[in-house]
Structures are given as structure tokens and as C-alpha cells.
Design a binder for these strands. Structure first.
Lengths: 259, 259
DNA sequence: ACCTGAACACCGTTCAAGT
DNA sequence: ACCTGAACACCGTTCAAGT
């Protein structure tokens, strides 16, 4: 239409670049959701035509891959510097295993996991795009990145080489699966009722579970209450500990595998 | 164009129905891939107009959800009847823990997992659609189904009620994550070179890993050989055992928790 | 109640043309 | 080398009209 639109960006002075395009794509995904990333929206935001974008990027899939990769790389880089954030409400009734040094491989794995967890919280489109990229090129840029970060700690844990692949896979798969589920919850809570907070959403979801036929879904029925009360990060951490314990029990020679 | 196309289906005699539409959608996804499911392709296959489909189905998302749900439900139903298939090549060097009854909860969990594993192998689009459905409605039809199947066995395992949610979540997340990764591999092997078999694909992928900079990716570099030799199902099973062991060690009161 | 099919708005992508 | 923007093919969805 011919409406004189307030020009969002003043005429572009700096040159276009792949980096700037990817950056704009991430912003669009964050603010407008997965459906909001459009070449038309992108051209408007960058004040160009579609052809300019295609000069720097082969197609939309490549752009999405680049956006995913950028966000994951940033998350993994950040978590290497910061110490792992403690769970919001410290629970003194559950003492963690005491015999771990502050920067044990276990702690670093938790840090990596929470790094991804947080990134997914900031960018709810991440899990879906990860799945899509996986189906396009399974050993593309992102998988190796995550695998490498986790794998190093598996190694540091003392797992013998023959079990590296198994142990790292188990961890990566759990982390991505759990973080994805969580992102879905958050996104859904936002979408269904923008004003509503997480607690109310979990309440509603729990109620929905309780309304399932108890004959067909006895377990879900029984566990609905737990799912209402659960704290995301606590739950996420508990799952990581399950996998870590399994790895330790199955793959570590003695009680303490560090050389 | 006006080419007189050989009409695939003779004039439809039976009435349209939601079931028939979902069935056709699954077939299209299987044969033509995720991009192949189109309302136009669907109308041609069903010999109708788009309006007819919209009478039975609200929109494409709902159709995809229904297709996903149908396939998952079938997989979970099938695995409840059949005994778990043994790994193709039995490995007598690795004795499984002997003290498990033939239909132990552990075995049933493995059966469920392999049921989903096989379903994903037949329908490579499943993981992506599961992720998409998750992001649309996290507690939609599919998640409760899988959660229920796995959860019952967690219960049978003797896990105390307070840990049900954690234990079931860990299993479900691992299963979906690992099966998804695998589906991606298969799909990619098919796409990149239709005539090539899995071994050759893994070979190529492994080589790609070995070509990554060893300074940036020391772990990946070291583990590339393992990934070439790995057997999917064996690997998948090993991961499940890691999670099961972790659950047993962390959440089971004694050594054997069954009452 | 169930189906038809033309029409609409929108999308990814291309390409001849400019600088 | 880098960018412009009109044009193309295709898609999900709608809706007045039929039976």
C-alpha cells in the first residue's frame, strides 16, 4: 500500500554483511517468533531488497542455520567463563553430594547445560530450529559444538575412551530434550495468555492432565500434582544428575575416576 | 497447465473423513518428505478441493498434529504386544545384567523406546513434527501418550512417587533426543546420496569430523572413529541403560525396589 | 451436512539491470 | 563486487455457491 511509512532505520550508511543479516534475523525471531522471520520483514529492517540478502546468504535455511549457530556458540562461550548459577531457591533439605571440588567436570557439565537452558529461554525458537537443522544436516555446525563442550568434561570425568561416545550422547540428548520441553512450556505460557505467569500456566496444564481419563492415563493422573509444583531448573538439574550418576556407575572404573 | 493428467484415483466413491485425510497426509509425508505435504497434493490425492479438507480439519498445523499423533499412538500400541526385538548382532562379549526377569520393567522400557525408534525410522519427519507440536502445545496429545507409557514402567520399577516425574522425564527426553538424532542421520544418508548405505554415510560423516580443527575440537577428533563404527541400536540401548542405571542408583531405596 | 473451486494474501526466490 | 526491485511460482486459507 502507498502509506508513507515512518522509516524505521535511517538510510543505511554501513554496508550490509552476513553478520548484520544474521543479527537482524535473530532479533526478528526473538521479537516476532518463528513466523516473523520473513525476507520481506528482513528487507524492511535492513532497508534493502531481497537480492541484497541473497548475495550474502544462499537461502532461508542457511540463514536459519547461521542464526541457530550464532546463538548456540554464544551460549557455550558464555558458560565457559561464568560459574554455574545456583538454583534460585536454595533447598537446604537436599544436601548435594559433598565430595565434589568446586570446578569438577560435573559442575562444568551443569554449567554447559544451564548455558543452553538459558539461551533457549531467551530464544524460544531455538529447539525447533535445532531439530530442523538436525534433520537437514545432522552433523552440521551446532551438534559438534555442543558435543565437543560436553565431551571434554566426559573425558575429564575419567570415562574410559571406549565409552566416550555413549556417555556424551546420553548427556547431549537429555540436555537438548529437557531444555526443549521447557522452552515449549515457556513459549506456550506466553502465547496462551500473555499476562499469565508460569505458575498459573503450570496450574492449568496440571489441571488438563488431571482431566484425562484415569483409566487410560493412570500415571499422568498420579503425577499431575508433581508437575504443578515442579521448579524447572531444579528438575532439569535432577535429570542431569540421573544421567551423570548412570555414567559414573556404568563407565567409571573405580569410585573416583580422576587420575 | 492444461496437460490431461492420468487421474491417479478413480472418482472417489467413499466419503471423505478426518481419518482418511490424516492417513493420506502420513503417506505423503512418508513418500514426499516434509515439504511434500501440501494442500494441493492432498486434494489431488484425495480427488477433492481444499474446502473439503478444511471441513474436516481446522488448518495445516492441526493436520500435522493429527498425523504425528496417529503414528506415535500406533508405535506405542504395537510395542505393548510384541516382545522387544533383540539387537541384530548379538554380542556375547558383553553379558547383560543377568538378574532381570524376561518382562522386567527395564525390558518394557526398552521395548517402548525401540517402538518409537522404529517408528521414527519409518517416518523420518516425526522428530521435527514432534518438536513443532511441542512448541505449539507442550502438553498436547503426544507428550502425555509417551509419558504415560514410560511412566508406568518407572512406577513398576519401584521408584518412589516423589521421583516419578524426574525419572520419567529423564527417560523420555533421552529417548526422543536420541531417536531424533538417529532419524536425522538416516534421512541425511538417504538425501545426500540415495544409493549410498548407512556405513558409507557414517564413513563420510566421520571423515568430516576428523577434518575439524583438532585445536578447536579435540574431543570430536578423538571420537570420530567410534562414531564410524557405532551400531545405532546398540548405542541407543546403551544410552537407555545409562539413564536406567542412574534412576536405579539415585531413586531406588535398596538394591531391588520391587515390593 | 458436506463438498466445489475460483480467488486472495503472502511467501521464498530469481534475475535483468544498475552502481 | 555489491545492491535494487519488479516479477514468478507456489503456498495456506477463505468463501460464495452448489448438492
Amino acid at each position: 500500500m502507498a502509506t508513507a511509512r515512518t522509516r524505521r532505520s535511517p538510510r543505511r550508511t554501513d554496508a550490509l554483511s552476513r553478520e548484520r543479516i544474521v543479527e537482524a534475523a535473530v532479533e526478528l525471531l526473538d521479537t516476532a517468533g518463528e513466523g516473523g522471520l520473513t525476507f520481506r520483514a528482513l528487507t524492511e529492517r535492513l532497508a534493502t531488497g531481497p537480492g541484497a540478502i541473497y548475495w550474502h546468504v544462499a537461502n532461508k535455511d542457511e540463514l536459519l542455520d547461521a542464526a541457530t549457530d550464532a546463538v548456540v556458540a554464544a551460549a557455550l562461550a558464555a558458560e565457559c567463563l561464568e560459574p554455574p548459577k545456583p538454583t534460585k531457591r536454595a533447598d537446604p533439605t537436599k544436601p548435594t553430594k559433598p565430595a565434589e571440588s568446586p570446578d569438577s567436570p560435573q559442575d562444568k557439565i551443569r554449567a554447559i547445560a544451564f548455558g543452553l537452558f538459558d539461551a533457549i529461554e531467551d530464544h524460544p525458537w531455538l529447539p525447533t530450529q535445532l531439530a530442523l537443522q538436525l534433520s537437514r544436516s545432522p552433523w552440521g555446525s551446532v551438534t559438534p559444538r555442543i558435543f565437543e563442550s560436553v565431551g571434554r568434561q566426559v573425558r575429564a570425568l575419567g570415562v574410559p575412551e571406549g565409552h566416550w561416545f555413549t556417555a556424551a550422547s546420553a548427556l547431549v540428548h537429555y540436555i537438548l530434550g529437557a531444555a526443549g520441553q521447557n522452552a515449549a512450556n515457556n513459549a506456550s505460557a506466553r502465547t496462551l495468555a500473555p499476562g499469565v505467569d508460569r505458575a498459573q500456566f503450570l496450574d492449568a496444564a496440571s489441571k488438563a492432565w488431571q482431566e484425562l481419563d484415569p483409566d487410560d492415563y493412570p500415571f499422568i493422573h498420579a503425577v499431575a500434582a508433581q508437575m504443578r509444583e515442579h521448579d524447572d531448573r531444579e528438575q532439569f538439574l535432577a535429570g542431569i544428575d540421573v544421567v551423570l550418576t548412570g555414567i559414573t556407575a556404568l563407565h567409571l572404573p573405580g569410585e573416583r575416576g580422576r587420575t
